[in-house]
């Protein structure tokens, strides 16, 4: 979000605009992924990271520092998006369980009903 101002290519229009759009969205998905129940949102950053790797060529960046910045940040986000981290709590089978009937929470509810 701040790289164009810091690295000194704020006057180029396309590069800062691209970064000002992609930056907040990546930060948002990353923050939502802080919590275990929504950890899956880290994967939403994968296409955005790939876009950062491609953007210098697709948009024709004419600033080498901006290109390097985009590649480094893109590679970091891509790599870190695949780090799942620790999941210490259980969530009744999670979001995927909403699409099936034989889920963790359904089985557990049946067990509890018999007690």
């Amino acid at each position: 979000m701040a790289s164009s101002a810091i690295l000194g290519y704020a006057s180029a229009k396309t590069i800062p605009d691209n970064e000002h759009i992609v930056g907040p969205i990546i930060a948002t998905f990353a923050i939502i992924s802080w919590w275990e129940a929504t950890r899956v949102l880290r994967l939403y950053n994968v296409p955005l990271a790939v876009w950062l790797l491609l953007a210098p060529w697709v948009l024709g960046y004419d600033h080498s520092l901006a290109t390097a910045n985009s590649m480094i940040v893109g590679a970091l986000v891509l790599g870190l998006s695949f780090v799942k981290g620790k999941i210490e709590d259980s969530y009744g089978g999670g979001w995927a369980s909403l699409l099936k009937s034989d889920s963790v929470h359904a089985k557990e509810a049946q067990k509890r009903g018999k007690r």
Partner: peptide, 28 residues
């Protein structure tokens, strides 16, 4: 303000998941 509203999303979603799972069990 934006940071505050983004920070609130994750922790609110687990409760919604529990409700949706409950409604799914009721539907089944």
């Amino acid at each position: 303000s934006a940071a505050v509203s983004v920070i609130m999303i994750g922790p609110a979603m687990d409760e919604m998941l529990a409700s949706l799972q409950y409604m799914k069990r009721a539907k089944d």
